[in-house]
Amino acid sequence: MMNNIIKNMRINRLVRINLVGFYTIIRREIKRVVRIWIQTILPPAITMTLYFIIFGSLIGSRIGDMSGVPYTTFIAPGLIMMSIITNSFGNVVSSFFSGKLHRHLEEMLVSPMEITTIVFGFVSGGLFRGILVSLVVTIVALFFTELKITYPLITVSTIILTSVTFSLAGLLNAIFAKNFDEISIIPTFVLAPLTYLGGVFFSISLLSPFWQSVAQFNPILYMVNAFRYGMLGISDIPILKAYTIIILALVFLFSLVIFLLKRGTGVRN
């Protein structure tokens, strides 16, 4: 009887530690995003404005329709998704790596918080920035084209799933990174090509059958198309297949990140 009471008290204590700890990390991450808004919120707004001016208004008007909608409307969901991907990734990779580099990540590592709580905290920061940037870029897009949300649930769930997936990818990059060069390699040499080839600016139906098959290995293709389906109701990929791939990528990255951090890779001796 007494043993059970003590056991329950310990469990309650650890639950409280993890709940308050999670809230503390989220609060810290959100404050960071808002505090350095010139680095976090403003750049995607400017970049996307330029994309819409050049690819939407100037070039897009000569392209005409794509998949049955004006080109500017076609690229809008892709550009929003592109911002979500780069910002979620960038937020977590920079925050986690800077903690690792300046060693204040140790504050969390020596604390009684679970590794999953720390991961949830950082990922929530990436999710917050992803959602915030998606709102800003959507507002920018509305200046250039009319947008509707055909399937709100699909639209919102794709934003959340994509943002979480790329926050985890950013965390993975930060775990292995030993210097600042190594946190810019993945965004430059992996993320950017995959994003540009992931159907942001074109429908993969324009590609030859061979390249269409190759494109199926690009996870960003599924995210862009799921999001485009949610907004415009058009997609190159069956929506169920898109969700399956996104969720599999998320679960794989989450499991890998937890495995590595529990093993101490990149953060402990």
Binding site: Y23, T24, I25, H102, S111
Partner: peptide, 21 residues
């Protein structure tokens, strides 16, 4: 030193307390 050099002294302590519930 393993403190967040860009955080205020009070926030460093408040955050640390949060990590311990």
């Amino acid at each position: 030193f393993n403190i967040n050099m860009f955080e205020t002294c009070s926030n460093i302590l408040i955050n640390q307390a949060g990590y311990y519930g």
